[in-house]
Design a protein around this nucleic acid. Structure first.
Length: 285
DNA sequence: GTAGGGTTACTC
DNA sequence: GAGTAACCCTAC
C-alpha cells in the first residue's frame, strides 16, 4: 500500500450523511459531485463514500465494522439481490444481508472438501447446541477438528460471527454464540432433513439449497418491507418538517411586515395624523 | 457506477 | 493478538 490511510474527518462524515439524506445511499457519485458536498468530499472517491457509509452503517448497528474473511475469493459470482441501499440509510443493516450470496447459503459440509467458513460455523453451532451458546474457542476447536482451516482462522471466526449476528443467523450471549431460534428452525431444517440428504443428485442438492434459502429470503423480504415502510414514514416526517419550516418562515415574514405597518401607524399617529380603518386596511397612507 | 468480498494498516 | 477503518479488487 502506497499512500498512508486518510482518516475521515467529522466534516467529511457529516457531508456524507447529508449527502445520503439528500440523494439517498447508493448515489455515491452524485453525492460526491454535488456542489454542496464536493468541497468537503473532493479528496474522496465515490468508492470511498460507499466504503465509509458501509462502515458507518455497521457501527450504527452496534456491530462494529463488517467482517473480513480471509478466504480465497470464490469464483462463483455473488449474484444475490443487492439490498436496497436505503435500508442501510435509516437503520442498522441487520437484515440487509439476509438474502445473502451463495457463499452464505448453508450447503451440507459433505458437499465439498472445504465448506465455506459460514457453513462450518453454522454447522458447529448447530451441533454443539449449547443452550447458552458456545464460546469462540469451543467453536474454533470444533471446526478445527472437522476441517482443515487456515492458521488465522480464529480471528476470522470472530469477524465472521459478527457478520452472522448482523444477518440474524447467530446471536451473542455474553461471550458465547448460538444460532438464533428462527434461523435454527428455518434454515437448518432442510439441511438436516434426511430425505433431502439422500438425494445426492445435483438437482436435489440445488433444491435443498433453494429450500434453505427460501425462509431467510422471506424473512429478508419481510424485514425489507418494514425498513422501507420505516424509511417512508421518516421521509414523510421530514417532508412535514420541511413544510413546517416553510410555514414558520412565512409567518415570520408576515409578522415582520405587520411590525413595519405598526411602526408606520405609530409614527403617523404620533404626528397627529388621522387615518381611517379603510386606509389602514389597504395601506393607503 | 455500485455492491460486496478481500487486504492491509492502525489502534488498543 | 484482536478489532476496526480505510483501501483494493472484481463482478455485475
Amino acid at each position: 500500500m502506497g499512500a498512508p490511510k486518510q482518516k475521515w474527518t467529522s466534516e467529511e462524515e457529516e457531508a456524507l450523511r447529508r449527502g445520503v439524506l439528500k440523494h439517498g445511499a447508493g448515489k455515491w457519485r452524485t453525492i460526491q459531485k454535488d456542489p454542496e458536498f464536493s468541497p468537503v468530499l473532493s479528496s474522496r472517491s465515490n468508492i470511498d463514500l460507499k466504503d465509509k457509509w458501509r462502515n458507518l452503517s455497521f457501527s450504527a448497528s452496534g456491530l462494529g465494522s463488517r467482517d473480513k474473511l480471509r478466504v480465497p475469493r470464490p469464483k462463483a459470482p455473488s449474484s444475490s439481490p443487492s439490498p436496497s441501499p436505503q435500508l442501510l440509510l435509516l437503520s442498522a443493516p441487520n437484515n440487509v444481508a439476509e438474502a445473502s450470496p451463495p457463499e452464505d447459503c448453508e450447503k451440507s459440509p459433505q458437499d465439498d472438501k472445504t465448506p465455506s467458513p459460514n457453513s462450518m460455523i453454522l454447522e458447529a453451532l448447530d451441533e454443539l447446541k449449547e443452550p447458552n451458546g458456545s464460546e469462540v474457542a469451543t467453536i474454533c476447536n470444533f471446526i478445527e477438528q472437522r476441517h482443515e482451516v487456515q492458521p488465522n482462522f480464529r480471528r476470522l471466526l470472530c469477524a465472521k460471527l459478527r457478520r452472522l449476528i448482523g444477518v440474524n443467523k447467530v446471536e451473542k450471549i455474553d461471550k458465547s454464540y448460538k444460532l438464533t431460534d428462527s434461523y435454527a428452525k428455518r434454515a437448518l431444517a432442510p439441511m438436516k432433513d434426511p430425505s433431502l440428504k439422500k438425494k445426492d443428485s445435483a438437482k436435489s442438492s440445488k433444491a435443498a439449497k433453494g429450500l434453505g434459502q427460501l425462509s431467510p429470503a422471506l424473512d429478508a423480504a419481510e424485514a425489507a418491507a418494514m425498513k422501507v415502510a420505516d424509511a417512508e414514514a421518516k421521509s414523510h416526517l421530514a417532508n412535514e418538517h420541511m413544510m413546517e419550516v416553510e410555514r414558520i418562515g412565512k409567518m415570520a415574514e408576515e409578522t415582520e411586515s405587520l411590525l413595519e405597518l405598526a411602526s408606520e401607524l405609530y409614527e403617523r399617529c404620533s404626528r397627529g395624523e388621522a387615518l381611517t380603518i379603510l386606509q389602514v386596511a389597504h395601506r393607503e397612507f
